[in-house]
Every structure is written in structure tokens, then in C-alpha cells.
Design a protein around this nucleic acid. Sequence first.
DNA 1: CGTATTAAATGACTGGAAGTTATAATTTAG
DNA 2: CTAAATTATAACTTCCAGTCATTTAATACG
Lengths: 221, 221
Amino acid sequence: MTISDRKEREKEKRRNDIVDAAEALFFSKGYEAVTLDEIADKAELSKGTLYLYFKNKLDLYFFVAGRGLQIMIDMFQETLTGEKTGLQKVRAIGEAYHRFFTQHGHYFQTVNFWDSREIDSYLGIPGGETCHQLGNQALGMVARAVAEGVADGSIRPDIDPAKAAVVLWGQATGVFQLLQTKVEHFLQCHDDFPFASVEEIVAFFFDMIERSLLPGPGGKA
Amino acid sequence: MTISDRKEREKEKRRNDIVDAAEALFFSKGYEAVTLDEIADKAELSKGTLYLYFKNKLDLYFFVAGRGLQIMIDMFQETLTGEKTGLQKVRAIGEAYHRFFTQHGHYFQTVNFWDSREIDSYLGIPGGETCHQLGNQALGMVARAVAEGVADGSIRPDIDPAKAAVVLWGQATGVFQLLQTKVEHFLQCHDDFPFASVEEIVAFFFDMIERSLLPGPGGKA
DNA sequence: CGTATTAAATGACTGGAAGTTATAATTTAG
DNA sequence: CTAAATTATAACTTCCAGTCATTTAATACG
């Protein structure tokens, strides 16, 4: 079926072009400020056509988020090559997540927009389902790294990998989100918050995490 | 000026009544699904009148968030009574934040909606300004508790209170947010995430935090 | 080649919601 | 009791997501 295959590929490419246009606009103006007419314009298509490829505006936005998640996962994958202890892998993922945050701030924001919604609100929408799956994949990578660390002794044995993955994920996301929305504020309030840089805070955060995972006194297992 | 005082109070009361109506609707249907006509209806006022008391829909929503923040701060205040070490105070605030999250989930969500926005997007809106101020107040309480802990030796000395406050706040918010939006999912996926309860995760989170603040080996100061 | 059938694209249209404003009602002051 | 000022109203405007009848293009077939 080379013929319907080609059509399939063309359709996929068209879909991709639309996401390209949408992404540029979303990144520059934010979700609400962008209209579908604008996107259609930029994609050199009519608005009606958009609805042949996406369920609605949110679905389209979630496709952008899906791209972000894929980039993030690829960055995780890359960083896991080489010999590492479980703890080192956890740290590597954390640092990759931080790189994703700094190098792809717009994607981070978009992913967060998806992630901060109740599950029910995006299951049933194609783009949302994709995000859901990719999100689980990312969380699974963290859980696996923690499990390895418990196995090889680099992480304290009384830790449940699944629980730890959820907590680590929430923590990192929360810290990055706070930094993204409030950095200028913190950096400006010299009196209350005399920070040198965002990196300083991130370094402190990673240090905290490592301390809490390390085997040592107080292990309750 | 008892006369303009009374007017002032009446205006304040009217404003409060509107927020009451808005809050009920926002809590039951979410921000986007609520229309100003509905709110006006419920408040037994016309839509135009709402604009005499609030700048726009978002401003009104931020006033609800402000209520939430005030409740939260009051809970923090309450929990800080009695003799406590700095570390105990940090933990107490953390637990109060958790209680706020469980007992006032709708407020938590509303506050989060505000908190996850860039500063510029809410400065200039009265409700947003209020939230901003209250948010700083809450963060300040955390920073002060950490500082006390460093002073009394219950927290390791190489910690910068301001930095720690930001990180702790981000961490807790991120974990709670993740739990709020994804609990059912985690509790349902028995295979990957065999959780007994949300409390278990929260307990684990608090344990992690305490470990990372405790004085002990590895202190780099 | 030319015609019929199917698929893809269009853009005018609809419904609904945020925000405005001219007018009316009410309250205050003299 | 009347004039001025404040407060409330609801009809109106604007804008945008989403729909659909129609047109255009692609494919299959005689």
C-alpha cells in the first residue's frame, strides 16, 4: 500500500507543519493570546483545516507539549549512557531535567501547562493521551534509576523507588516552576533574598536531594 | 468621617459577597467554565456592577486566591505557637501546608493557579498584588524558621535561609500539585506504583526534607 | 482521455462570553 | 425639596473557538 502510505506520511507532515506554526505563536505570546486564525494564517491554511488535524485548540497545544516531553526524554536517555551507579543516574536525570528547563524554557512551560491539569481533563484528547504516555515514561526512568541505586547500594535501602520517583519529580518540577515564574523577583529583592544566581539555588536543591537519598545514619529499614 | 467609613465598609461587604458567589462557582466548575453572568446572577447583581468592584475576571479570581493565602498564613501562624526549634518550626509549617492542601484543596488549587503565573502577568491587578504580598509573607515565614534553625543548631549551619525557603516552597508545592492532579492515576496503576495512600508519599517527602536539613556528616561549611 | 467518486480544504457563519457604556435609579448634600 | 454625585443596570460591541455547507483537488474507472 505505497499509495496510502504516502498519504499517511503527507498527512503527518502537514500535521507537523501546523504544530510548527502553532508552537512559534504559543511560545511568543502564550496560549490564551493566540487565536486559531493566526495559527491558520501562519500555517497558510484555513481555520477549518486545523480541525481536520486536531480536535481543538487545547489538543494542538498538547501536541506542542508532547514535542517538549519527547525532547526531554531524549535528553534523559542520552545522559544515562556510560557506567553509573543508580544514584549517579538519578543525579544525571536531574541535571538533564535542569538543562531541559534552561535550554528549552518554552517547552518546559508548555509541558507544565499540561502537567498541572487533572488527568480527566486531557484523557480523551489525542495530544493529551500522548503527553500522558510520555509523562509516565519519564517517571518510569526515574523510578528505574532509583531502583538500581537501591540495588547497588548507592541509595539507602529503605526507599521505595516508585514513591521516590513521584516525590523527586514533583520536587524538581516545583522548584523549576517557581524559578521560572519568580526569578527576576528573587534576584531583584536584594534585601530579603540576596541571591547571586539561579544556578546557586539549583545547586543547593541538588545537594538537598542527594543528602536525602544517600545511605547513612537514620536509615529506618 | 463615620459616614464615608460606613460606605467603605458597605463597599467592602459588597465586594466580599461577590467573591463569595464567585468562589462557590469557581470551586465547583473551575475558572474557565464559569461566566461572569453566572457570578452576577448568583450575587444578585448585574454583570456591569462586577466591574465596579473588580478589574476583570482574573482579578476576581485572584481575590479568591488571596483568601486562600490568608487562610494558609493563618494556619502557619497558629502552628508556630509554643516552644519549638527552628527545624521543628520548618516541619510544622510543612505539615500546616499539607493540612491546608488536604482541608482546603480548592483554595490550594486557586492559589496555585496564581502562583504558576509570571509575576508581570498579575502585578498591576489589585487581586494579584494582594496575592504577591501574601505569598512573600508566607515565604518569609519559612525563611525565618530556617534561620532560627541555623541559629539554634537544629539545622546544619551551611544553609542559607533565603535559598532554602525558596527551594522548600517549590518542592512542597510541586509535590502537592502532582498529588492533586494525579493521585487517582497513581493509586490505580497498581503494577507500576503500588501505593497504599497519599499520606505515605507525603510522609516520605517530609522524611526526605528532614534528612536534607539535619546537621550531620557531609556538612560542607 | 474524460467522467464519477472520494477526499481535502475553505471561509462564511454561529454561539457564547468578556468587557463597555449610555441610561436609570438611588443616595447624599445643601 | 432639589441638585449633585454615586451606584446599578442591561443592552451593546467585540472577539474568538468551533461548525458546516460548499468548493476544489485527487483518485479511480470506463
